[in-house]
Write a protein that binds this DNA or RNA. Structure first.
Lengths: 198, 198
DNA sequence: GTCTATAGCTAGATAGAC
DNA sequence: GTCTATCTAGCTATAGAC
């Protein structure tokens, strides 16, 4: 075992190539040739570290889960209301956002989870990370009295579903609902707040 | 022009074949051979009525939009709260629902809308039908005093996003959040109601 | 109108040289 | 480890007989 991290580094650079290729072409048109275009080596080189294309995508999803976890946990734990609003700003992506293409690609992958054994586990990991982070924020808010006495996991699941769904209608379909969605989630968060005089 | 409806009938029976094939295999694995398996005639026969596979899928989407419109408009207009709860029951599909496979397939198609000219228009039509129906229900509720003075379109867009997103996490990914989601949208609808003593 | 057969293409994955 | 070349499978769409 000379340098066990060399392989890990190579695998991560493939995962990043997958990410760039997905952002540009989407999952449907993703080919190993396009991944190789974003990779420093050739198409055949991808297969030295991975057995199948799906495993390359799974590596990307593992990376994405780590990043989302970081982004959602960086929020301040001492102010649950601000934390929840920050999380929503992050999750309700707008069409012009830099990572909009990746959000749509993850939605594509999610819609194929039923039929794809390899991708199901990392996708479940990713969505669970979001759900848990949101649940923690809401639970902290209820405990500290900032929110009403709501069910944290139900609130988090509903919010996560709304965020995921907004990717489809606002970003993928480019429906003109960006402002409506912002108004919608803002009003929802408002409705969670504890009455000031109580 | 002997019988102008013969073609329309044939096209509809292809659309239904697409629907059955999508429910079984999903969009990613949908092939013209699988559509033909669900069709009374051969694979080449499909191309007598349609020029491309995408046009067959578009015909299915047109059909689906009609059905969703019917389902959402059948609700009683004189009781906005009941109408909204009915609409949510319909939109928040559970994994065991008969049409769960179709809901996931529509999600797949939605995620490809960015890259597919042919499918974008019918998908926009379908989502717009849902959004308009929900907006009308909410607007009626506000007008009749059943709901608080909320913004109908923002409320409808947020609810539609949540419903669409629930298909991904609850149905496609089979995440264990069905009960949480029901609790989530129920609490949300509750929060829209006007205060009884006002 | 509907069929069988197949053209033409593109994809994922591998062989074998270096 | 990385490359070029290629194999094989499966797809959409069409040609041409009936």
């Amino acid at each position: 075992m000379v340098s066990p991290d060399m392989d890990a580094d190579a695998r991560e650079s493939v995962a990043l190539a997958v990410q760039r290729a997905l952002a540009q072409h989407g999952y449907e048109r993703l080919t190993t040739a396009k991944i190789a275009e974003e990779y420093e080596n050739s198409e055949a080189g991808l297969y030295y570290y991975f057995d199948t294309k799906d495993e390359m995508i799974a590596a990307f999803l593992d990376l994405a889960a780590d990043h989302i976890r970081e982004d959602l946990l960086r929020v301040e734990a001492d102010d649950p209301e601000a934390a929840l609003r920050d999380a929503c700003e992050f999750l309700f992506r707008t069409p012009d956002h830099e990572h909009a293409g990746i959000a749509v690609a993850i939605m594509e992958l999610l819609s194929h989870a039923q039929y794809n054994e390899t991708l199901r586990a990392p996708l479940l990991e990713l969505e669970t990370a979001c759900l848990d982070a949101l649940t923690d924020i809401v639970a902290a808010g209820v405990e500290q009295g900032a929110f009403r006495d709501i069910e944290p996991r139900a609130t988090a699941a509903f919010l996560l579903a709304a965020a995921d769904g907004s990717t489809g209608i606002a970003v993928a379909l480019e429906m003109d609902v960006t402002d409506d969605l912002r108004q919608g989630w803002t009003a929802y968060v408002d409705s969670l707040l504890a009455e000031p005089a109580e």
